[in-house]
Design a protein around this nucleic acid. Structure first.
Lengths: 224, 224
DNA sequence: CGAGTTTCGGTACTCAGTCCATAATGAGTC
DNA sequence: GACTCATTATGGACTGAGTACCGAAACTCG
């Protein structure tokens, strides 16, 4: 209630990606500048030893301007990922209607993976020795994880004709997202020779979808 | 690196549950007192509006003493859960050796569920309207989640004759733990008429184990 | 040129978590 | 009992993230 997670989606970014209403003072170049400054500083000093003041200062803006663009310091660790996650509703909408629930689930996750840019690997992972932000990275990750799982849950409920709160639906979406994340992390940690993200995700997610297919694709028990 | 997660296990509590070495000043009643004080205050004012100073003050101890028992304010939200998670290594050790990897995974998770006290439901869930700490609860949850997943991963690797970092193993343990958590959360949110935790967990976890059984129980590919 | 709207920047504040130095309280030893 | 050692309790001071508030820029629209 206090800080982020206002929207409900995974993305925590303070300001919308696109220019908001018309009129008003135009944004300076700030956002990109801040990202770059932060990246440099993280590499130089590590995440923990870098303060928001320093980032703002190097970017040549005031401290408050930082919070105008990012709700949290840890948002900087999820730059490209948040972009992809923001696209989830769009991805869900394009999943063909005829599919069985478990297949639709699979399709949705793969759609997300396909959309993600091949170079979009969080700094915290690609440079993790230098940055040393594993702990923060993890802690800030769950919010995103749960956001996706929840969104996927309502999608899955609709596709399977079940109630949104159905335990089976929730378990399936949680497990599937966990597999997705695990696969994506493995992919990100592989060197340059890594293949397509979608392949890694498929390997990780497929078993989950198969596992839940039996229960999920059957008609829901009328009551309960 | 900065704060918690030193041990590697899920439990973040600063001080060991049992009295450490012999000698030294005896602990005051503090720990339990702190827990109670925190519980009261959370119910009265909510989590966010309760400061550590207030908790310590009501418990009649100094502020630093609080950090002697808990590494983090959010640790207070996980009291009974952390106890159960701490028992994971023990649970893993008692999983029969003959089982197939996927069955062993199932057994381990159920063992954890069986061990958990029936009343041990985090305040943040049972009183969630009054406490309003969902966000904090979530954020502090991932650390525990990942701790269990990692521990389970090495267990699973050993049982299946695979490398500890094997993507399949990691995906399986992540997905299984996610299902476990999902099931446990549903169980916790059910009213008094809830049955055994183990039943809820079984329903959630079974499909995952079945899904990975095919790949996991087969002999690992020699190379790679 | 206003009027409205948005961003920018500074000051001041709260509070979690850390560090350090110092007492208090016991056990074990001689 | 006196002394040492280990452990816990406590107080003071500090860092840094996140919030709130206010006034000043900068731009659009009428």
């Amino acid at each position: 209630m206090t800080k982020s997670s206002a929207g409900g989606t995974a993305a925590t970014t303070a300001s919308p990606a696109v220019r908001s209403g018309r009129g008003g003072r135009p944004r300076a170049s700030s956002r990109r500048t801040l990202e770059d400054a932060a990246g440099e500083l993280f590499l130089e000093q590590g995440y923990a030893r870098t303060t928001i003041d320093q980032i703002a200062q190097r970017a040549g803006v005031g401290r408050n301007t930082f919070f105008n663009y990012f709700a949290t310091k840890s948002d900087l660790l999820w730059l490209d990922v948040d972009d992809t996650l923001r696209a989830l509703p769009e991805v869900l909408a394009t999943v063909p209607a005829g599919l069985a629930p478990s297949a639709a689930l699979r399709e949705a996750l793969l759609g997300l993976a396909v959309r993600h840019p091949h170079r979009g690997i969080p700094l915290a992972l690609s440079q993790r020795e230098a940055i040393g932000a594993e702990a923060e990275f993890r802690a800030s990750g769950l919010e995103r994880f749960l956001g996706v799982a929840a969104e996927l849950g309502t999608f899955l409920a609709a596709r399977s004709g079940r109630a949104p709160g159905d335990p089976l639906v929730r378990a399936a979406s949680s497990a599937a997202v966990a597999a997705l994340v695990s696969g994506a992390a493995d992919w990100a940690l592989t060197g340059v020779e890594r293949g397509a993200l979608a392949d890694a995700v498929r390997d990780a997610v497929d078993p989950v979808c198969r596992g839940y297919a039996l229960a999920l694709d059957a008609a829901p028990a009328a009551t309960r």
